[in-house]
Simulated assay, not measured.
Amino acid sequence: MIPTSFDYAAPTTIDEALQMLAASPDDTKLLAGGQSLIPVMKLRLADAEHLVDLGRIEQMRGVRMDGDRLVIGAMTEHHEVASHPLVAAHAGVLADAAASVADPQVRHRGTIGGALVHADPAGDYPAPALALDAELVITGATGTRTVPAAEFFEDYFTTAVGDDEILTEIRLPSYSGWGGRYEKFTRVAQQWSIVAVAAEVRVDGGVIAEARIGLTNMGSTPIRARGVEAALAGCAIDDGSVAEACASVAEGTSPPNDINGDADYRRHLATVLTRRAVLGAARQEPAH
C-alpha cells in the first residue's frame, strides 16, 4: 500500500528538528531509520502530515567515551553498534544484541534510538539497556533531561519521550572486563524475539561476582531479573549451579499468548535462555 501524503523535512541540527516538531507535535512524526515507521505508514496504521527525517543530524551519530561512560548517539545504526570496538569493550551484550537484529539491510538502516523509542516488547535493545543501567538523554524545547532505562519504558510501544521531545543519545556505565551474551529464540530467521535474554557477567576468582540480566518479550516492557542476579553472585560457572540460580527467572513475569507460543512456553524458554546467556557471558564464549 501507499502511505497518506505528507510534508517532508530533513533538518541538520537538533534545534531545527525541535522547531519543526514544536510547530505541530500532534501531526508530526520523527523518522530515524524508518524500519518500523515506514511499514506501518504503508499499511496506514499510522500517518503524519509532517515527517521530520533525523538522518542528517550528525551530532546524533557515533560512539565515544565521556570519562567512564559509553555514549552512543541515537541515530547510530545497528551495524555500527554491533561492530564498534568501544561497544564490544564496554557493553558486550549490547553489541551482541545489535548483531542479532533482523538482517544486514535492516542493520544498515535502522538506528538504536529509533528502536528504543519504538519500544516493541519483542525488540532487542530494551532488555540490554535495562540490564546495563543505561541512561536515555531526551532533548526538548525547554532543555535536556536524562531518564534511567528503568523509567524510560512505560508500556507497549510507550516511552518517557514526550510528543515534543527527541531521544538524542544513550549513556552507559563501562562494563570493561565483563562478558556479555544475548540469547534469542525465534520461530524463523530474522523474526522478532519470541523470548530473549540479555546477560552481562563479571567473573572473579573463578566464580560469578556480579550479573546483570534483562528479559525480552516477557511483559509489556523489558524486565530486570534482580532475583536471579542476586542468586548468581558467588555462583560456580558450571551448568548445574547456573541452572539452579536461573530457575526462578520467569517468576512474576507476564509473557504474551500468541501464535508463536503461550505464556508457559515462554516461561520455559526464559529459563533455558537465561542459563545459556549467563554461561556464555561468564565464559566469554564467541557469540553465535
Rank of each mutant, 00 (worst) to 15 (best):
R283G: 04
T221N: 13
D264E: 15
A245I: 03
L136I: 08
A74I: 00
T271D: 09
A48N: 06
T139E: 14
A22C: 01
T76F: 05
L18E: 13
L37V: 03
L86Y: 07
G240N: 12
I213K: 04
D103P: 04
G205A: 01
R226F: 09
G206K: 01
G179V: 00
F152D: 09
N260V: 00
M218C: 09
R202M: 03
S193M: 06
D96R: 03
V201N: 11
I112P: 10
S24H: 08
I72L: 09
L232S: 15
T111H: 13
A243K: 11
G205P: 01
D264P: 05
A149H: 06
L130N: 11
V195K: 11
I112A: 08
H90V: 00
Y156E: 11
A150L: 10
V52T: 12
D47W: 10
D53N: 09
D120Y: 04
L45G: 10
Q105H: 15
A115N: 15
C246I: 01
V201A: 12
S5I: 00
G219C: 05
A91R: 02
G240W: 15
P11Q: 08
V272D: 15
V228W: 11
A189N: 13
R171D: 07
P39D: 08
Y125C: 01
E183T: 01
L21S: 11
N257Q: 05
D68E: 15
Y265T: 00
G280W: 04
S254L: 04
P104Q: 08
S5V: 03
D264L: 00
P121I: 00
L167V: 01
D96P: 07
S248G: 10
A134P: 08
S83Q: 08
A236G: 14
R145Y: 12
E169I: 00
A46F: 04
R276W: 12
L116W: 05
E165T: 07
G34H: 08
T28D: 09
L45W: 09
I2E: 14
P11M: 06
G114H: 03
L279S: 12
R171F: 13
P148Y: 10
R107T: 04
D258H: 06
S5D: 14
G252P: 04
E77F: 05
R171E: 14
A243D: 14
L70M: 07
S241P: 06
